[in-house]
Design a binder for these strands. Structure first.
Length: 564
RNA sequence: GCGCUCGUAGCUCAGCGGAUAGAGCACUGGUCUUCGGAACCAGGGGUCGGGGGUUCGAAUCCCUCCGGGCGCGCCA
């Protein structure tokens, strides 16, 4: 149980006691307003008295005093007081704090994890980039966000599935096929018109050439339509291969790759239209079939089936989501979308209503754009022009750890700048480096202790009395709370900030206080403290998918070693 | 024009109803040579885009204006 929960229980009991003997009127409150305190005199504060003031008809400070009188003594609390306009302040006891180290070490990798999600089936669908080319850095942001979100949900007790939706039908992939076919034919001096709006990236030429080299001119024997079919199939394969490979460099893997073509094959798309028609949400006019719903004013009608008889993207996506909820019975689905597709979310929510599926079960997280900055100059990204910044380039340049950290450190709904020079940096101006280095530093201290045959199994934790030591423990105890909140709000961007803060606190502590000293007893206690910090750093880095090294080797040293 | 979103320190960003608004970097001044100096300590720096409203209390909620981004296809 988190510390906050424990304090809430003490407070709830005190309120009930005060109400039982009529010192306070019986008023129901669902929120006790207990939060980490912003003032240094307290660890936790409750705003309950101020919340109650109006209903009770008394001054907040008086209510606070009444409640404080009823709070049962607890070994965890050093002091409970009334402060400011009517806060109840809770100060944790030093001895109690010190003892938490044992709990953290005992929990180990499980420290912070919870079963708050109660095994609920959740799907996180992310990336889902059209298989028409490699990932851009913008896609990469969604990839990291989705992956870490899945990790967070798993750590908070959900049954999580990661899924990639492959749009392997329709115009876009066919356009890729046609673009490749044109380049392919050119290899044999046969001119095939490049399609309007075709794909311009260099990779299209590369792929076409590779096929020409491997397969020869046999596709030229086919009718153009059939040849484009073949190239579409090959293009999808190549694109997915590249995407899979580049995600793999960040250890991002999907449990399921769901192909749009499966929906068509199973008749799920026409099934979805029938379903909407049954529920009175379909109209036919102008040769097209329309989805009619009450939302969005002017946008309350959308085409389901084009005049050509083909379903639109919206229609297959409705079928797809029906499959998620009705066939596969996910309780909650989280879709991560790029900002350029955010307009899709309200339509899908309208579709959920129309299908009779509660719209709260479908959450869209919108990922805003990423501006890559190199030497202070923004790198222009334009997929159309073919000179876009590739995600794989970025990862190759700054490494998976820095990529993950910096992508994660900003709230999804803010645009972000990715400073390549900072991310590349191997000094402590780079936050990722600082955190990983703190972990390695502790590992180094523990190695030294082991060399000196210091037994760390038993320690008198009450010897941890220095303010920075107790503050480190306080920070570590915030970790379960942080994780829980990240799981509820779906906002993993707090993780990197927490890790940076803990690493910074440790750095300050270790510079002032020697862990290994002549004082054997204190040494053992501090080694346990420092082990706990290492554990928490490892846990949070693991959650972000960032490596936690036992030692760090400078690039210069690494070169010297391999050179020698 | 309509919709979504962002506007907080010189820069990049947290905070999103509570008590003197925070971090990293940058800047200034110190400490100094390590249990890994790939530092640490201290300090300066903010009309929380402007205005109005709700509230005991607003960076946080509502309205409005200004500015940036993204959408508004029988594309996906």
């Amino acid at each position: 149980m988190t510390v906050r929960r424990q304090i809430e229980q003490l407070l709830a009991a005190a309120l009930a006691a005060a109400q039982a003997d009529d010192r306070l009127p019986a008023i129901d409150t669902d929120d006790l307003g207990v939060e980490r305190s912003r003032v240094k005199e307290a660890d936790f504060s409750s705003t309950l008295p101020m919340r109650l003031a109006r209903a009770v008809g008394a001054a907040p400070r008086d209510i606070a005093a009444t409640i404080v009188d009823s709070i049962a003594p607890s070994p965890m609390l050093a002091e409970v007081s009334v402060a400011g306009p009517g806060f109840i302040n809770f100060l944790l006891a030093d001895a109690w704090l010190a003892e938490r180290i044992a709990e953290i070490l005992e929990s180990g990798t499980a420290f912070g994890r919870s079963d708050a999600g109660a095994g609920r089936r959740v799907q996180v669908e992310f990336v889902s980039v059209n298989p028409t080319g490699p990932l851009t850095v913008g896609h990469g942001r969604g990839a990291v966000l989705g992956d870490v979100l899945a990790r967070v949900l798993d750590a908070t007790g959900h049954a999580v599935q990661r899924e990639y939706y492959v749009n392997d039908s329709g115009n876009q992939v066919r356009l890729l096929g046609a673009s490749m076919y044109s380049h392919y034919a050119a290899e044999f001096d046969v001119e095939v018109a490049f399609p309007a709006g075709g794909y311009l990236g260099d990779y299209v030429v590369d792929w076409a050439r590779a096929i020409a080299a491997e397969e020869g001119r046999r596709f030229l024997e086919l009718a153009e339509d059939d040849a484009v079919d073949e190239f579409t199939r090959l293009g999808i394969e190549l694109a997915l291969g590249a995407i899979r490979e580049h995600l793999g460099e960040l250890d991002i893997e999907f449990a399921n790759w769901f192909h749009e073509s499966e929906l068509h094959a199973a008749g799920a798309v026409t099934g979805a239209i029938d379903r909407l028609r049954d529920r009175g949400h379909v109209a036919e006019r102008e040769g097209a079939v329309w989805f009619v719903h009450g939302d969005e004013g002017d946008d309350s009608e959308n085409v389901l089936v084009k005049r050509t008889g083909e379903p639109t993207y919206l229609t297959t996506d409705i079928a797809y989501h029906r499959n998620k909820f009705e066939e596969r019975e996910f309780e909650l689905v989280i879709d991560i979308l790029g900002a350029d597709h955010h307009g899709h979310a309200p339509r899908m929510h309208a579709a959920m209503d129309a299908l009779g599926i509660p719209r709260e079960r479908l959450t869209y997280l919108i990922c805003q754009m990423v501006h890559v900055v190199v030497e202070g100059i923004p790198v222009k990204q334009s997929k159309r022009a073919g000179d876009f910044e590739l995600f794989s380039q970025l990862v190759a340049d700054v490494g998976p750890d820095a990529t993950r950290y910096h992508m994660l450190a900003r709230a999804a709904d803010s645009q972000m700048e990715f400073d390549v020079d900072l991310a590349r940096s191997q000094t402590e101006e780079n936050p990722v480096h600082k955190i990983r280095y703190a972990h390695a530093r502790i590992a180094s201290i523990l190695r030294k202790a082991a060399d000196q045959k210091i037994d760390t199994a038993e320690a008198d934790l009450s010897l941890l009395t220095e303010a920075p030591e107790l503050d480190l423990i306080r920070t570590m105890l915030d970790y379960p709370e942080l994780l829980d909140s990240a799981g509820r709000t779906l906002e993993p961007h707090h993780l990197p900030h927490f890790a940076l803060n803990l690493a910074g606190q440790f750095n300050s502590y270790y510079h002032v206080h020697r862990v290994i000293s002549e004082d054997k007893e204190r040494t053992r206690a501090r080694l346990q403290l420092v082990s706990a910090v290492k554990q928490v750093l490892a846990n949070i880095l693991g959650l972000m998918g960032i490596t936690a090294p036992e030692r760090m080797v400078r690039e210069a040293e690494a070169e010297a070693e391999t050179g020698a």
